[in-house]
Amino acid sequence: MEEILNKIKQYETIIIHRHVRPDPDAYGSQLGLKYILQDTFPEKNIYAVGQSEPTLEFIGDLDEISDDTYNGALVIVCDTANSPRIDDERFNKGSELIKIDHHPPVDSYGDINFVNTNASSTSEIIFDLNHSWNLNDSNVSERASRVLYLGIVGDTGRFLFDNTTPHTMEVAAQLMTQEFERNRLLNQLSEREPELLHFQGYILQNFNYDGEGFCSIKITKDILEKFNLKPNEASLFVNTVADIKGLKAWVFAVDEGKEIRCRIRSKGITINHIAAKYNGGGHPNASGASVYSWEEFDALTADIKSEI
């Protein structure tokens, strides 16, 4: 922690990245770190970059910077297990690179790697880093508290997932001491356009449950076209079947054209090693993988069934 702070103090320009297809924790940790550093070092140039996700733009704005900005800059990547998933390939153009993450450390791509797999989220880690640095008496501003709270809420499933620890609740409680419109923000986090709910109805009528703990959902290109959906919009419904009685693991597959993106979830069964076998990875109970044909998808589902 101290080594990271020393590096931050050395640089005038700091550029913060996160993973592609960002979720609330990717946004929360990236913007939370940006706001904390801006509040503490107003003289520094602090940027948060990456492709914007329309459904999460209410969390905060991202920066557009030129390639020259990376000259002599410190780059920090949040919430990204392996370098191919880093959003914006310019991340390696800076002088030094720091990785801050809570996923299993499959790729130590940074000059400094800070990974805590016991943390619920990278947003929780950012809070702990700030507390350890004792910057501004460790107080977190309203804007930083808001995004870190949303990041934690997102990665814990509103504190329902197994990764929610007593420490997670303590961090959330401290963030809640700042005044921000929690109810409004939580509503925005779960809001869906009306046409998306028709798609949710399709999932509920067409999921494939084998009766032995495994469920699969296949979203082909023609289904995306039928509901006028983008792949990232379809993926919002990965947990639609989570309440099936007896369910132990499920996979939500979306044909994105160049690849079939598979989001794998489980209840108490470790599945990230299976995801790693199929060009992916992630948490023991929540991972992602990529296959390149529906035949390969069948092989993936067979491996998950074997694990069950």
Rank of each mutant, 00 (worst) to 15 (best):
I274F: 08
D255K: 13
T168G: 00
L160F: 14
A26W: 04
R158V: 11
I16F: 07
A119Q: 06
D63E: 15
L150P: 15
K34N: 07
F180N: 07
D162L: 06
P105G: 01
L196M: 04
N285A: 14
G110K: 02
G60D: 09
K277F: 00
E57G: 08
G154W: 02
I219A: 07
F91W: 10
I269L: 14
P104D: 04
L204H: 04
G50S: 14
M1L: 06
T40G: 02
N118V: 08
T117G: 10
F114I: 10
G288C: 07
G201L: 05
T220L: 09
D67I: 09
D111L: 11
A144E: 13
K9F: 10
R192H: 10
P24W: 04
K226C: 13
V251H: 05
G60L: 04
A276L: 12
M1C: 04
S95T: 04
Y70N: 00
E64W: 04
P22G: 02
E64P: 00
I203T: 00
D243P: 01
L204C: 10
G280H: 14
L5I: 06
K245V: 09
A81D: 01
K226V: 14
L175S: 04
D137M: 09
I264P: 07
G28V: 07
H102L: 02
L185A: 02
Q178T: 08
T220M: 11
G94P: 03
T80F: 06
G282M: 04
W250N: 10
S287K: 11
G288R: 09
D23C: 05
N134G: 13
T122C: 14
E295T: 15
Q51A: 14
N130I: 00
I260V: 15
I4F: 10
D303M: 12
I274E: 08
S293Q: 12
N285F: 14
K99M: 05
T220R: 12
T80V: 13
T164L: 04
T177V: 08
P284A: 03
G94H: 02
L189C: 14
F91Q: 02
P166V: 01
K221Q: 14
S132I: 05
E179I: 07
I14H: 02
I36W: 00
N239P: 03
K9Y: 07
Y11N: 09
T164S: 01
I264V: 15
E212N: 15
D107N: 10
N113L: 11
K93P: 06
S145F: 11
K248Y: 03
D101N: 02
C78G: 01
L185M: 12
S145Q: 13
F91E: 05
T164A: 03
D23L: 04
A242P: 02
T40F: 00
Y70W: 02
I126M: 05
W250P: 06
V106T: 09
I244N: 05
A144P: 15
I264S: 06
Q200K: 14
V254T: 11
R265V: 13
Y109G: 08
N206Q: 11
D61A: 15
L204Q: 06
E191T: 13
L186Q: 11
K226A: 15
I274L: 05
V153Y: 15
V171R: 00
G268V: 15
G213R: 14
